[in-house]
Write a protein that binds this DNA or RNA. Structure first.
Lengths: 154, 154
DNA sequence: AAGGTAGGTCCAGATTTCGGACCTACCGAA
DNA sequence: TTCGGTAGGTCCGAAATCTGGACCTACCTT
């Protein structure tokens, strides 16, 4: 009969990756978060081909993650700024960074560290906004679908 | 002279993306987190080409994110399980999901929700492990490099 | 014997990425 | 005036990846 569930899952993770999942996209965001807004700088510090980065920045701007702003007329110069949506990628980048710190650092330890405003070296934890307790693989689950009659999609 | 900083930044974000940044990699992890461990199921629910997913699972296993285990001899059958490193990608997936929920959901709202063990619908926040306060773009910064004489690298 | 399930592989074509050369415009120094 | 440097790209051909679909093996059930 009809498949029980839409074949490719309708999912915010997939949607997000359509926007920021292309190669170099998140590294571009990382650079701007670190304060580098100029094209050459972004290319240099990510290592991406200029070509690819130009294309990537274009799609990020179109997707509303960054904004391209002219900061100098005459020598026409542009810079890339993060929109609110772009700044909200901070948790994604940070969790990726900490995962790499934990699983991909050699004996030298993490290649870079950050400092929280409280004064400590930053390590983070993901918590439930309602109760403040850690949110983990083990303690979150999908709620039972509140089936009310003929709902499409499970 | 010599460049002030290593050209492509040495960075855990970049390292992480080398492992989980290829197309379909994080969606494969998502599926296993959701409880689908079989190849066909992973292919079906992600929408990836079988070929690509086979290759991706192979690299994830090699990278130590997943483990491929035989759960049936004779009809030789395998399943994919997350290692500890794989389970620790939960925060990455969750922050990506919430970003998509916030910025890419249409008028129908998020395509799926989760429930925390406290009973509430799960929304998360990233906090500093030391002080418990939110960790954001605005309140974390790179510490001053503790320059002691002739340190390479800034 | 037919059909289904599970877990793949193989292939040819389409799409992306890569690195490097090149281009335009401006500035400052010689 | 010419040279060199900076900034922000574009263009190109070659290489690597991704894509969809067909196909394969082994087993089980009907």
């Amino acid at each position: 009969m009809t498949p029980k569930t839409p074949e490719p899952r309708v999912c915010s993770v997939a949607r997000s990756l359509e926007v920021v999942g292309e190669k170099w996209a998140l590294l571009a965001v990382r650079e701007v978060l670190l304060g580098n807004r100029r094209f050459d700088e972004i290319v240099r510090r990510t290592g991406a081909p200029r070509d690819t980065m130009a294309a990537r920045l274009k799609t990020l701007v179109e997707a509303g993650v960054m904004e391209r702003r002219q900061y100098s007329e005459h020598p026409a110069r542009h810079e890339y700024l993060l929109t609110d949506a772009g700044k909200d990628l901070y948790p994604v980048i940070t969790t990726l960074r900490e995962w790499g710190d934990r699983y991909l650092s050699g004996r030298q330890g993490p290649p870079s560290t950050f400092e929280h405003s409280c004064g400590h070296t930053l390590t983070t934890r993901l918590v439930c906004e309602s109760c403040g307790e850690p949110a983990t693989f083990a303690n979150s689950r999908r709620p039972k679908p509140a089936r009310a009659g003929a709902s499409l999609e499970g």
